[in-house]
Design a binder for these strands. Structure first.
Length: 248
DNA sequence: GCGACAG
DNA sequence: ATCTTGTCGC
């Protein structure tokens, strides 16, 4: 696991914390972490892909983080990791990672065998400083990541065709930073961008492969589903593998 | 100065 | 993000 170097990141025991940071300091961290990301094509073959998401009760300081691991061949969930944590940063557009990444890192640490790719709810490099939550998480942990957001944050884009699989580019000054991807027929697109350890083309290829019968690609959809079950007390905290017999 | 603004 | 019923469209 790759940890950031200086005092701007406060670590107690095994907990990463972002607290009492002003936005100027947060930007500094993003600029430092940005140098650690790679957007070169992923080489390792993908056997498993994880979806990562956060859930919380309104007005609550408690956040629930979940990572669900799916078999890449059939996109069936095979394991999940759930963690209950506390908020240490408010939600500010452009700084989502400071609010959600600490809890996701805790969930990551509970997983014995790391997934090959992580699809995270939010943007990758489709961000003002190219450091959306997926890029941030990837740079911090050395994992291969991509972002899948339900809404645009930064960049210009055109409505893609209405067919499942249609896509258009998210652009910022001549530079392509992601895609508006139609994951389902006649449904609003999702916004795809690489985070770390993969290329723009890789992120699009993976999004296409993970598109099922819902707007959200399977990894993100399952993560959202599972973490909500966890928040409402229907799943237990910790790492759990799913019984093969219950899967079909 | 004004509008936009992931979850 | 979350709280929620109906409702419109395929």
């Amino acid at each position: 696991m790759v940890w950031p170097d200086d005092k701007v990141h406060i670590m107690n025991e095994d907990y990463l914390r972002y607290s009492d940071l002003n936005l100027a300091e947060a930007k500094e961290i993003q600029n430092e972490l940005r140098e650690k990301i790679s957007l070169k094509p992923n080489t390792k073959p993908i056997q498993t892909i994880a979806g990562a998401d956060i859930s919380l009760n309104r007005f609550s300081e408690i956040i629930f983080a979940g990572i669900v691991i799916l078999r890449y061949s059939d996109l069936q969930p095979i394991a999940y990791s759930m963690v209950e944590s506390k908020t240490s940063f408010p939600y500010i557009p452009g700084f989502l990672a400071f609010r959600e990444v600490p809890a996701l890192v805790q969930a990551l640490k509970q997983i014995p065998v790391q997934p090959d790719v992580f699809m995270i709810d939010g943007h990758g490099i489709a961000h003002p400083r190219r450091m959306g939550i997926a890029a941030h998480f990837g740079a911090l942990t050395g994992t291969v990541t991509m972002g899948c957001a339900k809404n645009i944050l930064f960049g210009k884009w055109q409505e893609p065709g209405i067919q499942k699989g249609d896509y258009s580019l998210i652009i910022n000054k001549e530079e392509t930073i992601g895609y508006a991807f139609r994951s389902k027929f006649k449904t609003n697109p999702v916004f795809i961008s690489p985070g770390n350890g993969m290329s723009l083309a890789d992120s699009l290829d993976i999004a296409i492969r993970c598109a099922g019968n819902y707007r959200l690609p399977e990894p993100t959809r399952r993560a959202h589903e599972f973490v909500n079950l966890f928040r409402t007390g229907k799943l237990k905290e910790g790492y759990h593998e799913l019984s093969p017999q219950l899967l079909f």
